[in-house]
Amino acid sequence: MATITYREALNQALSEEIERDDKVVLMGEEVAQFKGSYKVSEGMLEKFGSDRIIDTPISEAAFSGLAVGAAMMGMRPVVEFMFWSFCYVAFDQIFNNAANVRYMSGGLINVPIVFRGPANGGTNVGATHSHTPENFAANTPGIKVICPATPADAKGMLKSAIRDNDPVCVMENTILYNLQGEVPEEDDFIIPLGKANVVREGSDLSIIAHGKSVHTALEVAQTLDETHKVSAEVVDLRSIRPLDTETILSSVRKTNRVLLVEENKPFCGVDAQIAFLIQDQAFDYLDAPIKRVSAIDAPQAYSKSLENAQIPNHDRVLSKAMELI
């Protein structure tokens, strides 16, 4: 095991896959000379050259669509969005073209492409730069969506995504880029998509989360244990589509109480689907209604104090957990 940052883990995944497969290229705004807006691709231009690490103009619709066209021809492009919020100007290319070409061609054409970048609030940048579109990406059949929360997951899942023959949206988090964690050093470390992770075992309550909310959930679980003698289990979804329904349901059958936590906005958010799943398939195991903490249902606020209140934080999650006990 080596201790590296989430950022370094992404860099390793990209570098290893570019070395492994000559069809893989990384393209996006500032990924080459500038070394990535968040320095994820540091050193890669020098190592792999400008044919593989490609700076694009600020022109998401064109370079996203270009990458889809190249993927249709058999390449494996990785498209970096400086923020996932910017995918909105490339919506047609991702959610019409990448998502539907395989289906509309009766399976004749594959689109092995990765769209990746940060999708999070909490950085004081206002409504236009703080979207978390994992819910509507996952609402699109043909697309896969993952939200790695740790350096190991970032590396292992991004590598899986690049090798996948279907379009995968990788939603990262700028606040996690500096997070350190242990990452296996084995040659070909891979984490399959669609495999949730029980990151803390518990018996009284299941807190199910994804992305940065996993870390909030872990902090709350610690407080519950230390202050209230409540044993909370924390499940990190890791992948939204495909979804590890079995791990979710087995945790619910074990603890009989569920708190869902996500940074998505509540209406039609990812956890709306998870709540439906649990009541549909584990209703008899529930000892209390499913509770949920999401972002407060307003456009993302700029002011730090407002945004801190808006995103699921320790106190909001803790108080909702206490309602369940």
Partner: peptide, 30 residues
């Protein structure tokens, strides 16, 4: 669609195929 005949569609959104054509050209050059 008929990729075996170098025919990549058939796209329903006006102008939506223009970046895809770019990508086909890009892959050929690559």
């Amino acid at each position: 669609f008929a990729p075996d005949k170098n025919f990549w569609g058939g796209h329903g959104i006006v102008g939506g195929q223009t970046p895809l054509g770019l990508g086909i050209a890009y892959a050929l050059k690559f």
